[in-house]
Design a binder for these strands. Structure first.
Lengths: 220, 220
DNA sequence: GTCGTTAACTTACCGTTGATAAGTTATCTG
DNA sequence: CAGATAACTTATCAACGGTAAGTTAACGAC
């Protein structure tokens, strides 16, 4: 992992060290997904960057999609982390909701490919599309479920806000859905139409947040 | 166009009739895009359904993406039509904006597959563009720009509202973008996650509209 | 030390993809 | 009938994701 972002590590791994190769593959895949997007990142390109042959990747992942999924969980972990941080450090309910929205938007812009994969259905088959939301009996360790966790946190935050005395203009669940939809609208617009000349991206983010807060919380 | 949704029309076209083949190709492509999505719809599958060889498609379209863009324009046309109707029949500025949002949502729910095709089509643009294979031209007659037309109508409606005395909380363009993003958030959520137990779909639609109107228009 | 086992990896290949080149056929014009 | 050419086909390309089968090297056991 040097400064030139080639991850070639040279020779064959020793007996018990296969997992380090796996991590090298993930690292190279992540770099390439971010550089080129999902489609343009080919198995061969990943293999080249790692310094192994293409089929070698299949010793560690069943297919290309699973590489992306593994990365999704990893990066969504960061989102969940920052949400947890907010929950831990911010006590004011209003501020919590706002900070959630900010974190969500910031994440979507920092990791558009992962966002696309989990929340936009993307081009990846059925398996991934349904995981954005709760599938109660499913294996919680399966890759790709972290998207649903994010939404559940928002529901919890808003429900707690109501419990702490804030008055909502809609049922808590509806408020959470409205909030998520609005922020998702901004996030997906930026991601899906990156070349569109948006008037002012920062203002759109903060503005939407203002609008939603004003819309779901009863005026003081 | 028979009951089995094969569009085979038989033999070779006569001299001046190439354009009818072009329409057959578009029809088949549309069906397949809706059935299978962009990625799974191959040139060969389209050609099979039309009843010609695969390279024949390249007599009418430069590449697969252009077929998609042509379909986008077609679908956007339906939306533009209903917007024009509103502009012609509704004079009150507030009501115009609201009706625009309603029409947009209604359109998305009446033609979910087409909406998905047009607005959620995350098909490659990024991947290809980043590889530098073909940079987007700034030719305004190029297919795929009608989407911007819809948005311009919303900008115009909101700008006219401002001109007629309504006070906006943001620049007109930003208001339009916020409005579109919010409605798109609702529309895409319903379409992308149809199985999610949304608390109340009607309330989410009208509620988001209320929230946006309240957010972009200064309170009376 | 050298053997068997097997993790780690390679070479060769499969079918399919979007797209192109070059040739063929059918229809229209003069 | 004789070009000309629109409409279309066959053959082919490089690149894709993925698989089969073989090779190399590191280990424990004796």
């Amino acid at each position: 992992m040097n400064a030139f972002s080639t991850t070639v590590t040279g020779g064959r791994k020793k007996r018990g060290e296969g997992h380090t190769r796996r991590e090298e593959i993930l690292q190279a895949a992540k770099e390439l997904f971010l550089e080129l997007g999902y489609e343009a990142t080919t198995i061969r390109r990943i293999a080249d960057r790692v310094g192994v042959s293409a089929p070698a990747l299949y010793l560690y992942f069943p297919d290309k999609e699973q590489m992306m999924l593994a990365l999704c969980d990893q990066t969504f972990g960061y989102l969940i982390e920052s949400i947890s941080e907010i929950e831990a450090s911010v006590s004011d309910p209003r501020e919590r909701i706002r900070r959630f929205g900010e974190a969500y938007l910031k994440f979507s812009q920092a990791h558009p490919d992962e966002y696309k994969l989990v929340f936009l259905g993307s081009n990846i088959p059925e398996a991934v599309r349904k995981l954005g939301h709760k599938m109660p009996t499913d294996d919680p360790t399966r890759p790709g479920v972290t998207g649903a966790l994010v939404f559940q946190r928002l529901v919890a935050i808003i429900a707690e806000a109501e419990a702490s005395g804030l008055k909502l203009n809609y049922p808590a669940e509806t408020c959470a859905e409205l909030c998520w939809m609005a922020m998702h609208g901004v996030a997906s617009a930026f991601i899906l139409k990156p070349e569109f000349p948006w008037s002012n991206r920062d203002l759109l983010g903060t503005g939407m947040l203002d609008i939603v807060m004003k819309g779901i919380l009863r005026a003081d």
